[in-house]
Design a protein around this nucleic acid. Structure first.
Lengths: 370, 370
DNA sequence: CTGTTCGATGTATGCGCTTACAGTGGAGCC
DNA sequence: GGCTCCACTGTAAGCGCATACATCGAACAG
């Protein structure tokens, strides 16, 4: 590995100017076919690979889009960093593996899906994707680092302080994922939280005839929760029910939180009949809650109907399977990238806010399986 | 968004030279504390974010490592690319979702894990990771593109033509994942395929007393399959069994391939008793095979023992759960990144080949559940 | 008080590429 | 034959930053 070849080397080898070498890659049609072949031959002979740094600097765009997610499962899995690169260990450990009780270890299915959508769209639009995961404490470094490398950045709303957003937005366009549109100038992509919960509530009230569903809220600070709760209230109002008179429980969007809510509820009931329906602000909460209720002998949906929101994979694998509102996560990723592309093409257009439709999935936790 | 600020702007604003601004970021200790504060104040005021392109060009290193995987699930999920960014669609579709028969949609759990390990290690070593997925046809463009952006690149062995490897290796160090060490000069990280299959085979032969296990091979071109088969043969030889006399079936590492193998086998048997043990070269094959055998009334492990190799998540969720050899996928990712780091630190050291130990997971597909 | 040393900062150069702009020569035309 | 036009190629000027080297003072030893 002597010296990595550059345009100059290729130009010299092919007997042309560096401009021509550059054109062969950037605008092949502007170069005569025979010249192009000569240059490409030199490229192959020398093993030339264009430097993205130099190109990015000269062209003022990198062709990379960034995606930032806060970290969730930072668990290091007890797998120590590889520092020693010592030789081969060929001892085979034998383990009698017993069935575990399950429990999703990866809470980030949501991001996996969004990422997948982003990637598909990035490929479609000719971009490369750079993903950053908020490591532990301070997202500032990570985000700034990425911001210096990309042409545009999409982040989960609320994952970084506004000041940081303002800062990096001086350099590149920012797209916020899944946050409510506030009075900022950023572009947004989000889902129809309120409409989804509204439709689900209507189903529970009108079709299933429950006139006093209990709502389990999430962290009150999140836009997602606020919007869902609003959809819930709106649906009740339409049916002439006073939502304010109904009890509201408080989870935190985690499965553990759902368990806690259920435990508290059971304690409060002290043996009385449980509510006819419990509508949770997200799936994790609903799943944790179901776990505890079922363990306590509550029959779902016979005694109590339970619903969630998100449509994560686990919601399909519980028993009974969870009725929920499915977010279009892949579409969310696609929309985020498409929005960035659009913004890059026309930086002057007014802030965009795109809201994606959701889908109501009726399953056994809210009705008979047939 | 007027003009993105540069070092010059910051330098002017802070009343220092651009060298000082640069030092504030690169070598803060070389700058007097008071000067540093002045500069940082200007940085905040202007919203300055260093350009990675310029830095990469000047410093001749980008701080990014690349990871390339061939594509597996290119399925577009019927989810069309977002071209229109039109307004909000708030109609909620309602779907009566019936339980599906499952079937893993994502065959790339393997890569997810390796990716996770790579990311952990990259973070540990202060690198950013750029992942590339071989889209459809030609990996050449993707790989060259990435190669121009990173300081080092790790790829799944066999995923791209050797000529491409030679080409890009003129620019950056290459690490091959999971391929057999050939007579090349690349660095390698891999797992103890042969040892793992050897241990598993010994278990089947010695502990379970099966003296005529059937081997289901994978694509013959892959090093993984070759090594596993070799481990199988070695174990038999040690027990004085003539491996050559035993039948070998041929899968292709996919679940569908496993189903096909099973169907063919059942047809061949024409009602006769199935083999006492079927040892597959990977999990997907074993899972597909089990599906078909079970559907045909074969009791596993009572009539036939089935084993796999890889330890993918699905192997833990089948019934019966699959006895298999677990690859240290996270560790593989870590090792790949650690190897690149090491190579970058000392480009002159001889090629490295690191082989990671595997773990034998005994589960119900090879024995009673108690 | 002068020569030395060293920490802090400025000066100047170049990293490898893109891209306006300026040739350059041949074909087509009057 | 001279002129225009066009397709192609070369010239040259940065892009924003890192860094070797020069410079400048002040602290310090003699």
């Amino acid at each position: 590995m002597k010296k990595t070849p550059t345009v100059y080397d290729v130009a010299a080898d092919a007997g042309v100017s560096i401009a021509t070498v550059s054109r062969v890659f950037r605008r092949p049609d502007d170069v005569r076919a025979s010249t192009r072949e000569t240059v490409l031959a030199s490229v192959r002979a020398l093993g030339y690979v264009p430097s993205a740094s130099a190109r990015g600097l000269a062209a003022r765009r990198t062709g990379v889009l960034g995606l930032f997610f806060p970290d969730f499962d930072v668990v290091d899995e007890g797998d120590a960093p590889s520092d020693d690169l010592s030789g081969s260990a060929s001892r085979v450990e034998v383990v009698r593996d017993i069935p575990d009780t399950g429990g999703a270890q990866r809470a980030d299915l949501y991001f996996d899906e969004v990422l997948r959508g982003s990637e598909l769209q990035a490929w479609h639009d000719g971009f490369t994707l750079m993903i950053g995961v908020g490591r532990g404490s301070n997202p500032v470094e990570v985000v700034t680092d990425i911001a210096g490398r990309v042409d545009g950045l999409a982040l989960l709303a609320g994952s970084v302080p506004d000041s940081l957003l303002e800062h990096v937005s001086r350099r590149i366009p920012i797209v916020l994922i899944a946050g409510a549109r506030r009075d900022d100038d950023f572009d947004h992509v989000m889902v129809a939280n309120a409409d989804g919960m509204h439709a689900l509530t209507r189903h529970v009230v009108d079709d299933l005839g429950v006139r006093d569903p209990v709502f389990v809220a999430g962290p009150s600070a999140t836009a997602d929760d606020v919007e869902r709760h609003e959809g819930f209230r709106r649906a009740l109002a339409e049916s002439g029910i006073d939502a304010e008179a109904l009890p509201v429980l408080h989870g935190d969007f985690t499965r553990a939180g759902g368990r806690r809510v259920a435990a508290d509820l059971l304690e409060t009931l002290a043996g009385a009949a449980p509510p006819r329906a419990i509508m949770c602000s997200n799936d994790q909460t609903a799943l944790g809650l179901m776990e505890v209720l079922i363990a306590a002998g509550v029959r779902i949906p016979l005694d109590t109907i339970v619903t969630g929101f998100d449509g994560i994979a686990e919601s399909r694998m519980s028993s009974p399977r969870l009725t929920t509102v499915q977010q279009p996560m892949i579409a969310l990723g696609r929309a985020a990238v498409a929005t960035m592309r659009s913004r890059l093409e026309d930086p002057e257009q007014p802030p965009m806010a795109r809201r994606l439709p959701v889908k109501l999935l009726l399953r056994e936790s809210s009705e008979g399986s047939a």
